[in-house]
């Protein structure tokens, strides 16, 4: 197990590379979901305002 973490002396390069890539994937998932959630909330607000105007 410690040999695996050691990565034949390349641990200082291999693990940060994997960490950066996994962070980019995670941020992409969070970012895409947040964009959609906010767009739906904005569209709902516009619909509510338009509904009040019609009354």
């Amino acid at each position: 197990m410690s040999a695996f973490i050691h990565m034949g002396g390349y641990a200082a390069y291999v693990w940060p590379a994997y960490a950066v890539t996994l962070a980019v994937i995670a941020l992409n998932i969070i970012g895409a979901r947040r964009l959609l959630r906010r767009s739906i909330a904005r569209a709902r607000r516009r619909l509510a305002v338009a509904g009040e105007g019609a009354r």
Binding site: A32, R33, L36, R38, I40, A43, A50
Partner: peptide, 21 residues
Amino acid sequence: VRVRGEILERERGARWVAQEL
């Protein structure tokens, strides 16, 4: 996922948005 958000921003006031939501 992103395209759905971008479509909603471009379809302000479209009737289908009210039905979809």
